[in-house]
Design a protein around this nucleic acid. Structure first.
Lengths: 221, 221
DNA sequence: GAATGTCTGTGACTAAGTCACAATCGACGC
DNA sequence: GCGTCGATTGTGACTTAGTCACAGACATTC
């Protein structure tokens, strides 16, 4: 008797027939990873597809010059299928995935993945939705990097990253990686935001003192 | 009796069973479009998936400020499935597809697409390969835009765009859109390349006078 | 409380993007 | 042949972003 309860974590899979559930549950392995684990990296051929139950995985690219850019994050309830599928299909790209928090996930071997794709329309829908969302995200990122001003992007990022208390726990280096820019640029931009009274800067911590001000900056054309 | 000969244009589909061929061929429509046709655009819900036989489709994004960036191009023998699938799955993105040349394509209605995905492993492979390649391309583009120098990117682009005679037929505006930068920047970069004896500039036309010089610039770290 | 490693700030410089024009070219009509 | 018009290209002056080379500040550990 397999444990199929994790399937409920994915609303799109809740319509699976008992047969289909069994197919997935039989092959699925529950895995737990601590924060900071490299899930995949250039040169590694992944043999499992991941469905995240809890935690987040950061997918990023590192430039030769040492600069980084975060491509997207996978959160609990989302699938990490896209990147692994890509790694299988085309060798050449330099993205790596790292757990940002402890992660609880379901790993599905390639053979079971293929079988599920063949047999289950619901499973296909999950996979396609994942692809579509990631691609839309990447396109949005390209638009951002190519066309938007840094102050606007930083304001946006601070708002997204802030907890309900209006506090962002991140170093300037981490923010720089999120935005694909240099740490010094973040330092100067934050200074300017502080001067304007929108944030207050601490070590590894930024407090948003004027969220609506930041929002209007983030929305500015 | 359906015409299934176009299937041979897609090597990955040549392994289809007669049944599967028939499924596709019955639903498929052959379409021809002149250059400059908008295949899809924000707000349009596409109801067909395209397999390109001949010609190219340019997929690009336009910024509020009027700047453009080419995300990728779909060539003959490739599928244009990704973007359309994305458009169906998630409304919010601003890419548009325009034919760059006259295009000869096969259009497959959504229902037949879903059926083919359910029944044919080969068809799934085509679709996944398309996704994987596009995503790898988008990631490469992000890396380029975020980290590479403009002179290097321009040199690369000129090499890719040049015919066997070493001539690029494109306006500076078009090159700027390819790279996601401003036309003035292309103008100045070209001037610098000309000064270094790598190219010779004409109106709507750039001649590569030193390909190996351009190559080493494009490869430079 | 001294040492150490991490994080942050800053000046000086280079690269890229923006804005506002001017100059040039090619095609078309007369 | 000549003039006109739109498209294309060139350029200066300025702003924004990224690079390099540091110095200073802070937290943790011994």
């Amino acid at each position: 008797m397999q444990d199929t309860s994790w399937i409920e974590r994915f609303p799109a899979l809740s319509v699976l027939s008992p047969d289909e559930r069994n197919l997935l549950a039989t092959a699925a392995m529950r895995i737990r990873l601590p924060a900071g684990t490299t899930v995949f990296a250039p040169g590694m051929t992944p043999d499992n597809f991941l469905l995240l139950l809890e935690g987040t995985v950061r997918v990023q690219q590192v430039s030769p010059g040492g600069r980084e850019i975060v491509l997207y994050r996978v959160h609990g309830g989302e699938s990490c299928i896209m990147t692994t599928a890509c790694l299988l299909a085309s060798e050449s790209y330099a993205a790596e995935g790292v757990t940002e928090t402890a992660v609880d996930a379901i790993a599905i071997p390639k053979t079971a993945f293929d079988a599920a794709m063949a047999r289950s329309a619901a499973f296909r829908r999950v996979v396609f939705t994942d692809y579509a969302q990631r691609i839309a995200g990447l396109m949005h990122l390209i638009e951002d990097v190519a066309f938007e001003r840094m102050d606007k992007r930083l304001a946006q990022r601070l708002i997204n990253r802030a907890g309900g208390d209006g506090i962002v726990l991140a170093t300037q280096q981490e923010l720089a990686a999120d935005l694909g820019t240099a740490r010094e640029v973040v330092s100067r931009q934050l200074k300017e935001l502080e001067r304007r009274g929108l944030v207050s800067i601490g070590r590894g911590r930024i407090e948003l003192t004027d969220r609506s001000g930041l929002s209007s900056l983030a929305a500015a054309g």
